[in-house]
Design a protein around this nucleic acid. Structure first.
Lengths: 350, 350
DNA sequence: CTAGGTATCCAAAGCCCTTTGCACAACCGC
DNA sequence: GCGGTTGTGCAAAGGGCTTTGGATACCTAG
């Protein structure tokens, strides 16, 4: 009992946060029932204009704002979705996030940022958001492979859209993705036309289908010798892989194709440090066309991915169904990519 | 008729989304009361191990996950906060967002991304999130000035933290910001030590307090002659201002200090085009240390801002109070900046 | 004068969960 | 045996909102 009174009202101590006005307070102050207040605010049923005016005035005076939580509970949906991405500080995902945010905001939805750092545990904790129905849906862009199984189970029960990502055996899914295979093909053709015959390809983790598609498209179009090294889409890994090869006695390739721009940056740095000139000695190609790609020296030849559109399309598609309480159907939206030829590629030396 | 059959048999069709199991369903299936289920799951009160096991098995079988919405309603808080920024595709804010997200996730909070594009209307709609108590707090990083007044009113009532942002006359606020003044000072000292005596300073709009602080710190430490030109933080303005001075008969300065990296890039381009060598003839310094700064040629000497830490600190501070249901006190956290000396600065010629 | 609107408003039933006060046994030491 | 623990589980009271089926009063028409 003493403990209770301690919490109740510590006389000389004002409460940490004053309880905000509820619909009951408004009703009482206006001399009507909560029902009427609700009707005035929502317009769901007609209310006598005089009464309505009185209610509105009280609402203003008390600064009443309906608790969206209660409304959501009653409505059975929150008007919030999640966006699951590995790394918001990667310009590609930032751009994608912007597209997703725009689409969500257009339809009055909020967007919860789920940054996973490719950490399976973190991803799971964020997927809890949808299982506990705190979000009405989820845009899933490139997660950690360990959770694929879990994702699969979720997709049947909850509205999920895949952005720039594919999942083996998940046919029944809503997917918006750039044309990775075509992107790889464009690079393959470009390097081939420049006379390159031996290329170092820095891929991402094999579990990510998008990366696999890029590599496949490239190999198919290039038709030369391809040395493959597996990285993790981070700048450091591009640097490390190339530096290691150089140490071990030479690259033995006239070009490097990195599966994303960040790794290309890393490769560029390693090459430059080793005294090699780009594109004089070695050509470098990236993928994504993040902003820095055109600002770096030399400007990076890369495949432009419509990151913004991918995010926007995936989200808009998802919401089209979520907002009607439906589970989205299987459908695929493949967005075109383009090759941006810049200064980092040149005809093969020799 | 055709339309309906298109949507599958509608008469006795299952609903679009099956109603998920509630605590009542679990209780009924396990032959206990909802109370007991709650206790089993929360551990708030001891439950007979045999009963608990039975409940847990039913929970698994039904795939029951408590509706976080109901829990939040009852608890009076949602464990979600908002992050309001102008542009997530700007690398600085993406980094800041990452810090904020990390801090939030560490404490089990979700983060709603509020991207405003400097649009006052959009900002207001997002501030509704906090007024309707859908978020427990808000990290506010650089909003549109029109809403300052509104922000001011909010700060008294709701938990809000300012990130890398200052507001005139808003003393009673929780603020985390980089030490802009010190950054300017570092640059001032650096150029002074290199023997520069006349410097062209490209500032940002005077309305932004952070830019003003940078300039003030610089002037104080440099103690030489400073020519000031006002830009707008964009690359083009850096180019334009320098090009114009060169046309009008010479720079008459041995160094340029731009208030951010983008303007420094512009300045660099203008100088190079005019046949001047950097840093041979003129030294150039930027501010922010965005990625491209180290990749440009020559690599840019600049002030590194801890964007990640600013986001993280602002959020962690906010949550420290929010998680206890308190309104955060006025406090200021100034984070240290560092000077990155790279290839764009050298001793003054002559 | 009554049947059938129409305009207004309210009571009560949820939405799904957690918390708290009790009830009921079974058991303890004295 | 008696007051007093422990262990175990339930009923009921919210938390703040929306929705829905009346209730009430007042009218209009037949």
């Amino acid at each position: 009992m003493t403990r209770e009174s301690h919490g109740q009202h510590r006389a000389d101590d004002r409460p940490a946060v004053r309880r905000p006005a509820s619909i009951k307070d408004v009703a009482a102050a206006a001399g009507v029932s909560p029902t009427t207040v609700s009707h005035v605010l929502s317009g769901n049923r007609p209310v006598n204009e005089q009464t309505a005016a009185r209610v509105r005035s009280v609402v203003n005076r008390l600064g009443y704002v309906p608790a969206s939580l209660a409304r959501s509970l009653q409505a059975g949906s929150t008007s919030v979705i999640g966006l699951l991405i590995p790394d918001i500080s990667n310009a590609f995902f930032a751009e994608l996030a912007k597209g997703a945010e725009d689409a969500a905001h257009d339809l009055g939805y909020g967007l919860i940022l789920c940054n996973t750092e490719f950490d399976a545990e973190r991803e799971d904790s964020y997927l809890g958001l949808i299982r506990s129905r705190f979000v009405d849906g989820m845009v899933y862009a490139s997660g950690s492979s360990p959770s694929r199984r879990r994702l699969e189970a979720l997709m049947g029960k909850f509205p999920i859209a895949l952005a720039d990502e594919e999942v083996d055996g998940l046919e029944r899914a809503l997917i918006a993705t750039a044309d990775h295979e075509a992107g790889g093909r464009l690079v393959g053709e470009h390097l081939r036309e420049l006379g390159h015959r031996r290329v170092l390809m820095l891929t991402g983790p094999r579990a990510l289908r998008s990366g696999v598609a890029r590599a496949a498209g490239f190999v198919r179009a290039f038709r030369g010798h391809v040395v493959e090294r597996v990285g993790d889409f981070k700048e450091a890994s591009g640097y490390r892989l190339v530096a290691k090869l150089l140490e071990e006695g030479g690259l033995d390739c006239t070009a490097v194709f990195a599966a994303n721009d960040l790794m290309a940056f890393g490769a560029l740095a390693a090459l430059t440090e080793a005294g090699l000139s780009v594109p004089g000695d070695v050509s470098v190609v990236g993928f994504d066309d993040i902003r820095a790609a055109s600002q770096i020296n030399p400007p990076l030849t890369t495949v432009h991915q419509p990151a913004y559109d991918v995010g926007r399309t995936a989200t808009a598609q998802l919401l089209q169904y979520v907002s009607r309480g439906e589970v989205p159907p299987a459908s695929r939206h493949t967005l075109p990519v383009t090759l941006k030829v810049r200064g980092s590629t040149a005809p093969a030396a020799g």
